[in-house]
Simulated scan of single mutants.
Amino acid sequence: MDRFHELNAFIAVVEAGGFSAAARITGDSQSAVSKAIGALEKRLGVVLFNRSTRSVTLTDQGQRYYDRTKPLVDEMDEADGELTSSTFNASGLIRIAAASTFGRLHILPLIPDLLSQNPGLQVDLVLSDFVRGMVEDRIDLAVRVGAVNELDAIVRRVAGTPLVCVGSRRYFALRGIPKTPTDLVDHNCLVYSGMTKSANWSFTGPGGRFSVSVRGNLSSNSVETIRAGVLAGVGIGLFTKASLAGELRHPDVISVLDEFVSDVRDVSLIWPQRRYVPARVRRATDFFAAALPQHI
């Protein structure tokens, strides 16, 4: 059996999530797809899929094989496209990951323009405050706010967003406005964290950088929750300005300790490290690199 046919069948099963769905995508019969996968597994000497009556999932060997072969097939498709089209257009599915609040405020509003300018693209937007593993979750492009810890990633910084400490007028009417960061020990500070109700917030004063241990009665691994808590008058929060967006113009929200808050978080576009980056990923990266600084 043709190796390329086997490989196409394998990738179709992975991305469709099953043999029947892969058959519909490829136009082959389900038996032909099953035969191609069987031939591929026999040739490689490994089992690529865990099969059950309800689902088809990759084995560890299957995942590694997909991660290695999918970029190669993409590159071949791109090469074919360049030769068969006088005006090469980026096309295909691109999976984009971003933090929930930042993605809702700044990525989602830009998606219509991205798709309008690149009608061949399909976008799968993954919004989560949990940092996604790019290879494991098959992320093509990630938008990160803050430090990037992946040593095997390609990082393109496109903007910066300063931090701001805010609370509601209702809260400050009851508790008073902190004049210095050390006053925060007497305030209810809402902590962005899934593990603890305390945190160290960093500030800059005449003597340089220092941190203040803060705590409060509400913590969460969701920026959206901390935002809602601040708006409801529960306490004080420390955010990037990009995560607050219009809230800074809200009549009930004011910033405090501005002269002590100097940190800026990078906004970066990230690719997983690999030899070949598809044109659709490059096109989306260039789009966001130009559009995000104007939107934040």
Rank of each mutant, 00 (worst) to 15 (best):
V256R: 00
G167I: 02
V191P: 00
R274I: 04
P178T: 09
E224S: 14
P206L: 11
I254W: 04
V223A: 06
D183F: 05
G216L: 02
G246L: 09
G205A: 15
G207L: 10
G229Y: 01
A199Y: 03
I254T: 12
V264A: 07
S219A: 14
V267C: 02
V214P: 00
L257R: 05
N200S: 12
G237A: 07
G235Q: 01
S198D: 14
V214G: 00
W201N: 01
L163H: 13
G208N: 12
G229K: 01
G229R: 00
L257H: 05
T180H: 11
R169M: 06
F239D: 00
I270K: 03
K179G: 12
R274C: 03
L184Q: 04
V164T: 14
S243I: 00
S262P: 00
G194Y: 06
V191K: 00
G205E: 12
I254G: 05
P251V: 09
S262Y: 08
K241H: 08
D266G: 05
R274N: 03
P272Y: 01
I177H: 04
T225D: 12
G216P: 02
V261Y: 05
V256L: 15
S255D: 13
A242M: 08
K197L: 07
Q273I: 04
G176T: 08
G176Q: 13
W201K: 01
S268G: 06
V212M: 02
W271Y: 14
V212G: 01
L231M: 10
E224K: 12
S211G: 11
A242I: 04
P251I: 11
N217V: 04
N221P: 12
A242H: 05
T204E: 14
A242V: 11
G205Q: 08
P251Q: 13
V166D: 00
L184G: 04
V214C: 04
A245Q: 09
R215C: 07
G246I: 03
T240H: 11
S213A: 09
G176V: 10
S222H: 10
I254F: 14
I270L: 15
S262C: 13
N200A: 14
V234L: 12
W271F: 15
E259L: 08
E259I: 07
R265Q: 15
S262N: 10
I270W: 05
K179F: 06
L231S: 03
I254P: 02
C189M: 06
L269M: 11
C165H: 04
S213W: 02
C189K: 00
C189P: 02
V261N: 07
Y171F: 15
V191G: 01
A173D: 14
Y171K: 08
G237C: 04
P178C: 13
S268V: 03
G167P: 01
S168I: 09
L231F: 06
Y171A: 08
I270Q: 09
